[in-house]
Simulated assay, not measured.
Amino acid sequence: MDNLKPRFTILVVDDEQANVELLEAYLHFEYDVITAFNGFEAIENARKKKPDLILLDIMMPDINGFEVCKVLKGSKDTAHIPIIMVTALSNRDDRAHAIEVGTDDFLSKPVDRLSLKTRVNSLLRLKALQDEILRERDQAQNYLDVAGAMFLVLDTEKHVKLINRKGCEILGYTEEEVIGKNWVDHFIPAYLRDEVNKRH
């Protein structure tokens, strides 16, 4: 039955061919491996091929791994992809900077095969759980979207956290225009606001 399980895809990014080949050799029996040899190619492959995990070198000539990580973690399409920084850098400032830009874990060069597999397996398990949660959320959102009534969720400050498609149609706004706005201040007529605030 294990053969029926889908294989995870890992993007390996390093400007040194030998480093890419070494990681590929460690991983290719269990995972589908795709490669990139510079930062721009890494960003393009991450966006187009949607890998399950990225092994990212820091020291690259065009844009470094810190910048690549920041771009990917800052994009809605790629923010959920775990990134392991693979680096010869070991000082505390470099690690702190990597954490600031959103890396999920570190591996030091030269890469130890056991450490690599342990960290990759751990992050892929977490990603599989996260993907399942996102699927369930999307399914719930689909149910709400086909409902014939407006449905919305507010936080304790009355900001809109979620609204269904019908709600957007009724209000005449897009989801992006509604999410994050204060419900009372933006969508309740002025003469009713005091009454609504008293009740809640």
Results as ranks from 00 to 15, higher is better:
Lys127Trp: 03
Leu27Phe: 04
Leu72Glu: 04
Asn121His: 06
Ala25Asn: 06
Val101Pro: 14
Leu56Gly: 15
Ala36Phe: 08
Thr118Phe: 06
Met85Ile: 13
Leu126Met: 03
Ser75Glu: 15
Lys48Arg: 02
Asp104Cys: 13
Ala88His: 00
Asp32Cys: 06
Ile34Glu: 13
Phe40Val: 12
Pro110Val: 09
Val71Thr: 13
Gly74Thr: 10
Glu41Arg: 12
Arg125Asn: 02
Asp105Ala: 14
Leu72Phe: 04
His28Ala: 03
Ala88Lys: 07
Ala98Phe: 01
Arg125His: 09
Asp112Thr: 09
Ile63Glu: 11
Ala88Met: 00
Val111Gly: 09
Glu30Met: 01
His28Tyr: 04
Ala98Leu: 02
Ile81Cys: 12
Asp52Ala: 14
Val86Lys: 13
Val111Arg: 02
Leu124Ser: 05
Asp32Asn: 14
Leu107Gly: 01
Pro61Ala: 11
Arg113Met: 05
Leu56Asn: 15
Arg95Phe: 12
Leu107Asp: 00
Phe40Lys: 15
Arg92Asn: 08
Met60Gly: 11
Val101Asp: 13
Asp62Cys: 06
Val33His: 10
Thr103Glu: 03
Phe29Ile: 04
Glu24Ala: 01
Thr35Phe: 12
Lys127Gly: 02
Val71Trp: 09
Ile99Thr: 09
Phe66Ala: 05
Phe106Pro: 06
Asp104Asn: 15
Leu53Ala: 12
Asp52Trp: 14
Val120Met: 06
Ala46Glu: 11
Glu67Gln: 11
Ala46Phe: 00
Val120Arg: 07
Asp112Gln: 15
Ile43Gln: 01
Val101Lys: 14
Met59Ser: 09
Val86Glu: 08
Arg113Gln: 10
Ile83Val: 15
Thr78Ser: 02
